[in-house]
Nucleic acid binder design. Structure first.
Lengths: 149, 149
DNA sequence: GTGCGTGCAAACATTTTGCAACTTT
DNA sequence: AAAGTTGCAAAATGTTTGCACGCAC
């Protein structure tokens, strides 16, 4: 399992400013929320957390969608599609651009990061066959070690 | 690249009856539609094709959703999530239960089947770590050999 | 001050549900 | 006849857009 090192808030802000994405109080709170867990979260979940926080301030669901979309464009968040109905978002490592993959436990619903380096050989294989600019989406489902025990 | 052998209509009907899923004229047409191409299709696309066919009969979009859902439950179709907004469906091989993976070309939008056996080592790895009943979803994006040439 | 960001309301798209009538087995 | 399926209308869900106001740079 890969240990996912959370980027620092300052590094994230720097990347935002670099890309002319403004740092607002709402966006800071969204980022806090993303930093607070390694679990990918839906826009609704983020909203719920913000509302429960000490200083909720004002933040609309729409703002969350728009911010996440911006964050995704500048590559600081990753969108995934575990729950079939709604997209989930989590922070990307800033340094290595390898996005990570997840494992969703059917029992405890926990989401666990998975080291995906074994896919590299498959990607090389596709390259050899003439495919180019390959990206991918990989998600696992099943029962996690804790629940299996 | 794996050659995907289409199951026969009769085999599909048999599996449906086996599972108490009734064979109706609407469902036969939906299956014809799925058989007509190896490309995963959305419910809307299937509806459009049905309406254009020689003997359109009557079939509502709702019926297509419901049928696909049934088909998915008895494992004769596979749901995928290439287009971020809507699910796409395609027939499964009936014999080997290995579902297949796809590659979506960013240029020509063609969807190509990909042999996924290289993932097996990763799955074994997860098994070793205590994960159980693992299933997965894997999709590739990029430029296909034809377009790259 | 400019341009990007925000909240609100409303639109949109996809998928699901309730129900009475109808078909397959 | 029983069980499952259909069409229609309506609802639910997740996400996007338009617009006037507001804030970061």
């Amino acid at each position: 399992m890969k240990k996912h090192k959370s980027p620092s808030k300052e590094a994230l802000f720097a990347k935002m400013r670099e890309n002319k994405v403004k740092v607002t109080s709402q966006r800071e709170k969204i980022i806090d929320c993303l930093l607070s867990t390694s679990q990918p979260q839906t826009a609704e979940e983020i909203l719920a957390k913000l509302k429960k926080s000490k200083a909720p301030g004002k933040c609309d669901l729409v703002t969350i969608y728009r911010s996440l979309h911006q964050f995704e464009k500048i590559n600081i968040v990753q969108k995934s599609f575990f729950s079939e109905n709604s997209a989930q978002y989590c922070l990307n490592d800033l340094d290595d651009h390898h996005h990570h993959h997840h494992f969703l436990c059917k029992k405890c619903q926990k989401i666990i990061e998975v080291d995906s380096c074994l896919l590299d050989s498959q990607l090389k294989n596709l390259e050899k066959k003439g495919f180019r600019e390959i990206s991918h989406r990989l998600e696992f489902f099943g029962i996690c070690p804790d629940c299996a025990a």
